[in-house]
Computed example of a mutant assay.
Amino acid sequence: MKAMDAPQNTMLVEFLSKPAQFLREMVTRDPAFIGASVLRESLSTWVTTGRKGIIPLVTNAKTFAGIATEMDPTYKKLVNAGIGSGYDFKGDIDANAQMFEKEIQEKAGRVSKIQKTVMPLTKAWQMLDKYSTAADLAPRETVYKKVLEETGNEAEAVYQALEVINFSRKGRGAFVRTLSSLIPFFNARLQGLDLLYRAGFGQMASEYAVNQQKAFWIRSSFILASTAAYVSLVKDTEEYENASDEERDNYWILPGAGNLKIPIPFEIGVLFKVLPERIYDSYFGEGTPQDLRDAIKRNLAGTLMFNPIPQAILPLAEVGMNYSIFLSRDIVG
């Protein structure tokens, strides 16, 4: 609540935040991102919430389908509770005012000629936004149902659904809030790491926190053990050998399945899949200590978003340095 009266961004920050906002909105409405999110959040939710009855990949996909087709009305309870703002929650007065004004105009039927002309594109954009929001809501609805079933407490169920990962939390620190505006998904990564810490060390605001912590480490250990088995099985396959470092980091590669790859969850995946895989490869495969260091740098700058350069100047900075921060390599050379 304290963050609601936090100072708004200056005109300069607003201007510099536009590229980040554009990239964020384009990425979150990409069908490939939406599909990957359904799979990623399924595993993340399974690990961090510790709730029973959640089947990784399967439960979240079914819930997503129910929300996207509006066959399951449960998600509307979460929306009415203020949950479901999506990955690019802005949470500032101007953004909320613009959204409110837009909805008033649409309900009043006041549509300009230009708006009528671009209506097909607008509808397509809104459809992608709907699916993106459904991907965000799917794990929340799953947790909501499980908590409500276990406790019968509606308020607790809504709260735990929000805490699957709370994008609306931004804090009052002006510096961090500014970085969140300038760097795409910076706040999402902070909230993901915070969730990882609270779930792993029993700091969740819930009576279930101790059980949640136990489930977190049991399920994380399962992913860790599975990683060793996975690498030993695929390391000599053509698909794995031909995959780039980025593909190995970001996916589980399935030999014999063509180009089919399963995206890994973000923070959970880095800790319990990427790093163990690189360590295993360094000791038992063809990997080197340098490969491990490159993977750490790549995931710190990419997946975990520890890259303080604003999106507005990042492309120019990389060209000037002739170095891709995400790929950890020269652009030309």
Score class of each variant (00 low, 15 high):
50 G>H: 06
218 I>N: 05
301 A>M: 15
82 G>E: 08
325 I>K: 10
230 Y>P: 00
82 G>P: 12
202 G>F: 01
159 Y>V: 05
145 K>C: 02
46 W>V: 10
295 A>R: 14
313 I>G: 05
276 P>E: 03
306 F>A: 05
331 I>Y: 07
292 L>P: 00
106 E>Q: 14
99 M>Q: 11
28 T>W: 11
56 P>E: 10
7 P>W: 08
13 V>W: 00
183 I>L: 05
204 M>S: 14
39 L>H: 04
301 A>I: 05
151 T>L: 08
254 L>P: 11
298 R>K: 15
131 Y>H: 15
250 N>I: 00
119 M>D: 12
277 E>Q: 14
277 E>F: 06
312 A>W: 11
158 V>K: 14
10 T>R: 12
116 K>R: 11
58 V>N: 01
218 I>C: 01
237 T>P: 06
17 S>T: 12
25 E>F: 10
212 Q>F: 00
215 A>P: 01
282 S>R: 11
91 G>K: 09
314 L>T: 06
306 F>C: 02
19 P>T: 03
262 I>H: 03
182 L>I: 09
333 G>E: 13
34 I>V: 15
242 N>L: 10
144 Y>C: 11
163 E>D: 12
246 E>D: 10
268 I>M: 11
63 T>V: 09
200 G>M: 05
276 P>S: 06
131 Y>T: 12
56 P>M: 11
29 R>C: 10
243 A>C: 10
33 F>S: 13
282 S>A: 12
47 V>C: 08
233 L>D: 09
155 A>F: 08
254 L>E: 02
214 K>E: 02
332 V>L: 07
123 K>I: 14
210 V>Y: 11
175 F>H: 08
40 R>E: 14
51 R>F: 01
96 N>L: 13
185 F>Q: 15
128 L>T: 14
50 G>D: 06
110 R>H: 06
17 S>A: 15
150 E>F: 00
172 R>W: 07
243 A>I: 13
89 F>E: 09
10 T>Q: 12
229 A>H: 03
71 M>R: 15
31 P>R: 13
146 K>E: 11
84 G>V: 05
52 K>F: 04
20 A>F: 02
163 E>L: 08
97 A>K: 12
97 A>F: 07
258 G>V: 08
157 A>Q: 13
28 T>D: 10
164 V>F: 00
26 M>N: 12
249 D>Q: 14
276 P>D: 02
150 E>Y: 00
295 A>M: 13
120 P>T: 03
226 S>Q: 00
232 S>G: 04
99 M>Y: 06
298 R>T: 12
75 Y>V: 06
291 D>A: 08
